[in-house]
Computed example of a mutant assay.
Amino acid sequence: MTISALIIDDEQLARDELAYLLESAKDVDVVAQGANGIEAVELIEEHHPDLVFLDVQMPGLDGFAVIQRVMDRHRKQKDGSNGWSLPQFVFATAYDQYAVRAFDVNAVDYLLKPFDRGRVEKALERVRGRMTNGAAAANGSSESPIESQLDALLSLLKSPQGAARTAPPAKLIVQAGSRLLLVDQADICFAEIEEGVIRVVTQQFEGQSKCRTIEELLDQLEPAMFWRAHRSFVANINQIREVVPWFKSTYQLRMNDKKQTEIPVSRAQTKRLRELFNL
């Protein structure tokens, strides 16, 4: 069975990267792409896809507003004679750590930018499983499993707890040798994951985080300060010393640590870099 899919993202580079990664999935057919929330709603109604890769952060109509409109229109049409099935959604996000936790709670899948091939393949496996199980579970039910999941997600995001968005701790525990140090987040220059180990570098020293993944580390960091410039690197925006032009219109970041380490910026994050520093 071929899975028809849409890619909705306001960044051309992100759309291109995801489309490239999906080419290796023989059962996925990307039928259209959109650059904003309005296009997303129109394309979903036009193509009735099985799957939508939907950016969370878009100007105007963000990913959650898209879901709300699609749900509203779906219910109106379902009451008539031209009802259609809701697609599976895989959300793409780079900054909103609360949203990531909300997705986990409601079993709605997500991808963190920059995209990782293995993570995309895992998301597709989950989509295939949900499509199979959802079709069976929906028999005899007035509301599909997808509808229930999305309702729960939107309710959580609108709740007072969701609106509050709990702030991350001001300090981070970093292991340096046998010592466990409490480090001010502002002093962290960058973090890098290599072979499952996360190295945290400050202006004075470096050590290791107890976190197992970059996603877990980001949950503990201030999202307004830290930016995932590359799938393996998280940079403190305030500790970037220099932006270095690199090959094929890409960049590297020279950080403010003792070694003035240069870390890469992925193609998908180039637009975000230009927005941050008006390049």
Rank of each mutant, 00 (worst) to 15 (best):
M131I: 13
E143R: 12
W84I: 02
H74F: 06
H47M: 15
A5H: 04
L86E: 14
W246F: 15
V201N: 01
F247L: 03
I173T: 11
H74A: 10
A137N: 04
M58K: 10
A164M: 09
S24Y: 05
P87R: 01
L221W: 01
I214N: 09
A19N: 14
K78C: 09
V66Q: 01
I240E: 15
I8D: 02
V127R: 00
V28G: 06
V28N: 04
I67M: 14
T2M: 13
E46W: 13
V41E: 08
M225H: 10
E222P: 01
V174Y: 00
V120I: 11
S141P: 07
H230N: 04
V90T: 08
A35G: 03
G129L: 14
N139K: 15
V56I: 15
D9W: 08
R272T: 05
I7M: 08
E39H: 10
T261K: 01
K113H: 10
V105Y: 13
G177S: 02
F89W: 05
R254P: 00
C211R: 01
S266N: 00
E17S: 10
A5K: 04
A191F: 05
S209M: 03
S155H: 15
F247A: 04
Q269G: 03
A102Q: 04
K258L: 14
H47D: 01
F233L: 02
R212L: 11
V70N: 05
S4H: 14
I8M: 13
P169L: 06
L112Y: 01
I193T: 15
I7E: 12
L276A: 03
F53T: 05
L279A: 00
L22E: 04
P145T: 05
E242H: 14
K122Y: 09
V174A: 06
